[in-house]
């Protein structure tokens, strides 16, 4: 049984992976501290609760990334001849589904609180022998939950592009958007301070909407991915031109008169087939030429991981 190549990453991507794993471990440690700080300053604020839930959900992408990048590089074997690349997509599916469900639940919760006109209670808290309004503690807690996270997101983004890792990209995008969550929650708390009871639940609604939207976007991304959609680069809506480039590469051989390439994403890398029509005047060792051509194609871009080049009498009609 032919097995896929074992090597996942060339050196540059490997370096990015190591850096990303460090950042994700840092993210987990940071999130753990955020969750504790938020929990103790949360009180009865719905917006704080929603922001806290979002931070809890924030654990999923880094955990998924750390586990999946470990499994994805397992070498292929007879049971899994295509390797373990897709574990990333499966993990991503679970994470997006969690995000989507939680967003929907939080939105319903916030709307319910608005409908029944629940007045959020934010009382006093004892600090160093003085009783101060708990709202004053919530604001720095929320800032702590967002500012470092923006920095983490910014550091992860280029790594995600280098590694072609969509889990890391989704995580970075969520981190970067954290300031919106924090600002909305702060506005809700300040609003309550001014005596507008609805400000808190309204802010919670806005936040849950952003969670829901994140979940929806990621879900759409990963489902189309698992449906073998034509590959897209990380963070871009257009299809990756790589299959076309590969076609041009094949056509640049004088012994190939026609070529057609299709590819699909398997986690970090692309798998695909190339159909070629060999020139009638071709003389030489066809299997040897094909083998050399395959090597050259996979060297063309590291993402071309597993390519089968098949000579055919004529190309099928393009859809």
């Amino acid at each position: 049984m032919p097995l896929s190549p074992a090597l996942e990453f060339p050196p540059q991507q490997d370096q990015a992976l190591r850096k990303a794993r460090r950042l994700e471990r840092l993210t987990i440690a940071y999130l753990a501290s955020v969750v504790v700080v938020m929990f103790f300053s949360m009180g009865a604020s719905q917006a704080m609760k929603t922001a806290w839930m979002e931070d809890m959900l924030g654990f999923i992408p880094p955990l998924v990334f750390l586990i999946a990048t470990r499994i994805a590089i397992w070498p292929p074997n007879k049971r899994f001849p295509y390797g373990y690349h897709r574990v990333i997509s499966i993990a991503f599916l679970c994470a997006s589904l969690a995000l989507f469900t939680m967003g929907a639940w939080l939105l319903v919760d916030a709307v319910y609180k608005l409908i029944v006109a629940e007045h959020p209670t934010i009382g006093g808290v004892q600090i160093f022998g003085r009783t101060i309004w708990l709202g004053w503690l919530m604001i720095p807690a929320l800032l702590y939950s967002s500012l470092p996270s923006m920095w983490l997101g910014r550091a992860k983004l280029p790594l995600a592009k280098t590694m072609h890792d969509k889990v890391l990209f989704a995580d970075a995008a969520m981190n970067r958007a954290d300031w919106q969550t924090a600002l909305a929650a702060i506005a809700g708390i300040v609003g309550v301070g001014f005596g507008f009871w609805w400000a808190d639940a309204a802010a919670a609604g806005l936040i849950s909407f952003s969670v829901l939207y994140d979940g929806y976007r990621n879900l759409r991304e990963v489902i189309t991915n698992l449906m073998d959609e034509a590959p897209k680069k990380v963070g871009e809506d257009n299809t990756d031109p790589l299959p076309q480039q590969l076609e041009s590469l094949l056509l640049s051989r004088d012994w190939i008169v026609a070529a057609s390439v299709r590819m699909r994403e398997q986690g970090h890398v692309y798998f695909g087939e190339a159909l070629i029509v060999v020139a009638p005047n071709f003389v030489g060792d066809l299997p040897q030429s094909l083998s050399e051509l395959t090597d050259e194609a996979t060297r063309y871009d590291w993402r071309i991981h597993d390519l089968v080049i098949a000579p055919v009498p004529q190309l099928p009609e393009e859809a």
Binding site: T121, G123, G124, W133, G193
Partner: peptide, 18 residues
């Protein structure tokens, strides 16, 4: 027990009790 969401009143009571 205090009415829900009357935060100034609640804070006043908390301070008074403290």
């Amino acid at each position: 027990l205090v009415p829900p969401g009357e935060n100034r009143w609640l804070l006043l009571l908390d301070r008074w009790l403290a």
